[in-house]
């Protein structure tokens, strides 16, 4: 992926900056420009997530594409943030340590380094809280 593509969403990836709809109170991460429930009646406001959440479901990835291969096996999870929205992220722990309902909190980490150029992409992962 090109550098601008990461750069554009850097604040969101680094600091869990999303948004929410003032009309219906629904939170979004990744941010949305349109509330899918209220559409044009929605009022979208920026919001930084606390980063506290729980594991809703997970898997241990054993076969990955080249950019992620060195990290295998790693835990991937759907995390429900305390604001009620869900996101997909890695959880840094032993494969047998992760479980459904486990409390986690956000950390700033390297996600992967890209191809031959080795450009490092940073973002949010989670650790057991």
């Amino acid at each position: 992926m090109s550098v601008p593509r990461y750069w554009r969403k850097q604040q969101n990836r680094y600091n869990l900056k999303g948004n929410y709809c003032e009309t219906c109170g629904r939170y979004f991460f990744p941010p949305r420009v349109l509330c899918p429930d209220c559409r044009r009646d929605g009022k979208i406001v920026d919001y930084e997530f606390s980063g506290n959440g729980t594991v809703r479901t997970f898997s241990i990835i054993r076969t990955a594409s080249d950019d992620y291969d060195l990290q295998t096996p790693y835990a991937i999870a759907i995390i429900e943030l305390e604001e009620g929205t869900c996101m997909t992220a890695q959880v840094i722990c032993e494969p047998d340590e992760i479980s459904i309902g486990m409390p986690v909190k956000r950390v700033f980490r390297k996600i992967f380094s890209e191809g031959d150029s080795g450009v490092i992409v940073y973002g949010t992962k989670f650790v057991p809280a």
Binding site: M1, R5, K9, P30, R56, T57, F58, S59, I61, T63, A64, S65, Y68, Q71, Y74, I76, A77, I78, M87, T88, A89, Q90, I100, I111, F112, V121, G123
Partner: peptide, 21 residues
């Protein structure tokens, strides 16, 4: 791609999360 794939979720990994649930 941006919010599942980039986080490290492979396609089998997503169905694996359905299976875990």
């Amino acid at each position: 791609r941006e919010w599942e794939g980039l986080a490290g979720a492979t396609f089998p990994g997503l169905y694996a999360m359905i299976a875990t649930d």
